[in-house]
Design a protein around this nucleic acid. Structure first.
Lengths: 211, 211
DNA sequence: TTTAATTTGTGACCATTAGTCACAAAATGA
DNA sequence: TCATTTTGTGACTAATGGTCACAAATTAAA
C-alpha cells in the first residue's frame, strides 16, 4: 500500500520534472523550436518516457498553459467594489496583463494554445478544461460590464460587442509582445506597451460610439 | 537576344507559377502545414527547382506578403479630405481590414511574416523591403492623426502612443480571425468582428484618457 | 521464496519534411 | 561541333515528433 503510493508519487514527480524542464527551456525567444529530446534530456529521462506522461508535445504546452491560468485565477479579485465598476474593470485588465508579464513563458504558451490547430490536437479532457476556464472568465467580465452600464458608470452599449473588442485588443497586445512585434517600435518596453494599451482599452470603453 | 529574353521570361513565369501554386494551397485553414514538395507538385516542377527561385520556405511567404502589401498600397487614398481627418482615419482603418478580408491568404501570410523568428530567416533585401513599407504607412498614419488633433477633430494625446494602441488592436483583430480564435464566439463572422473592432478603435481614439 | 503479471523506463527506429547537391538537359556562344 | 552557362531534378541528408519492442522494477499470487 505504502509502496504503491510511493510509486505513484514518483510518477507524479517525474511529470513535474518534465514540465519544469520544459518551462526552463521555453524561457528563450524561440521556445517553439525546443525539441522533445531536449526536454527529456533536461529532465534526465529518456525521450520515450515523455510520451508515457503526455500524448503529444501540444499536451505539454497545454499543461503549462493551464497552470498559467491557475496563477491568474489565484489573484482574481473575490470582491468587486459596488461603487466603481469601471475601476474594477480596469483593475482586472491590468491584473491580466500583469500576470502575463510575471509568468511570460506560461502566458506565451497559453496564447499559443488558443490557436484552433493546437486545440485540435489536444486530448478531449484538456480541451474541455480550457473552454470551461475561458467561459467562466468571460461570463464574469460580462456581468461586471453590465453592472457598470446599469449604474451609468459605463456608456450604454452592447456588452457582447465590448467584450469581443476588448478581447481583440488584449490578444493583440500580448501577441505583439510574445512574437517580437514590438521590437519594431524602438525602445518600447513590454511594460509601457501594456500601459498604453490598458489606457486605450479604457478609452474605448468610455469613448463615443459611431453609428 | 530574343532567345535570352524568352528564357528569362520563362524563368520569371515559373516563379509566378510557384507563388500561385503556393497561394492556392495556402487557402485551407492549416496553411502552415503545406509542404514545399506539395507546392512543387502543384506547380508541376521538381522540388529542387523551388530552391532555384527562393532561398527558403519563408521567402515564399515573404513574397506573398509583399504582394499583399502592394494590393493594400494600390487602394491607398491619394487625397485626404482637409475637413474631416477622423473620417479619413476610419476610412483607412476600414480599408486595411477590407483588404485583409479580400485577400485572406495574403493577409494571414503577411501577418505571419511579422514574427521576429520568421524575419530573421529572410534575405536582407526582402527584410528591408518589409521595414520600408511599414515605416511609410506608419508615418502617413501619424501625420494624419497629428493633423486631426491640430484642428480639434481628435482629442489631443500622444500620437505615438495612439498609433501603438491602434496597431495592437488591429493586429489582435486579424490574428484572432486567422488563428481561428473567433470561433469561440458562436456565430461571429469575420465581417462583424471587424465592424465591432473598427468602431471600438474609433471610440478609443475619441474616448477620455485616464491619468 | 518463486513465478507471473503489471507498471514504468528506454533508445533504436519510423515517417515526415526543409534544404542540398551531383548530375542531367537545354540553351547559348565560339 | 564542342565548350560554357543556365536551369531542372530527385535522391540524399539532417532534424524531429512520435512509436514500439523490449528491459527493469515493482506488485501479486502461488
Amino acid at each position: 500500500m505504502v509502496e504503491l503510493t510511493r510509486k505513484q508519487r514518483e510518477f507524479a514527480r517525474r511529470e513535474e520534472d518534465i514540465l519544469s524542464a520544459a518551462l526552463s527551456l521555453f524561457d528563450g525567444n524561440d521556445w517553439q523550436s525546443v525539441t522533445v529530446a531536449q526536454i527529456a534530456n533536461k529532465a534526465e529521462i529518456g525521450k520515450g518516457t515523455v510520451y508515457k506522461h503526455f500524448s503529444c508535445k501540444e499536451e505539454i504546452y497545454a499543461r503549462i498553459a493551464l497552470s498559467h491560468f491557475e496563477k491568474f485565477r489565484e489573484q482574481w479579485p473575490t470582491k468587486i467594489p459596488e461603487d466603481n465598476r469601471l475601476a474594477a474593470v480596469e483593475q482586472i485588465l491590468r491584473l491580466a496583463f500583469q500576470v502575463s508579464l510575471d509568468d511570460p513563458v506560461g502566458a506565451k504558451v497559453a496564447h499559443f494554445c488558443h490557436r484552433a490547430e493546437v486545440r485540435k490536437r489536444l486530448p478531449e479532457a484538456v480541451a474541455k478544461a480550457f473552454e470551461e476556464l475561458e467561459k467562466q472568465d468571460q461570463c464574469f467580465f460580462e456581468e461586471l460590464l453590465e453592472a457598470g452600464m446599469s449604474c451609468g458608470e459605463i456608456p450604454r452599449q452592447s456588452v457582447e460587442e465590448l467584450v469581443i473588442a476588448l478581447h481583440a485588443s488584449f490578444h493583440g497586445t500580448l501577441r505583439m509582445i510574445w512574437d517580437g512585434d514590438i521590437a519594431a517600435f524602438k525602445g518600447l518596453t513590454p511594460e509601457r506597451f501594456i500601459e498604453i494599451n490598458s489606457r486605450f482599452m479604457v478609452a474605448g470603453i468610455l469613448g463615443k460610439r459611431s453609428h
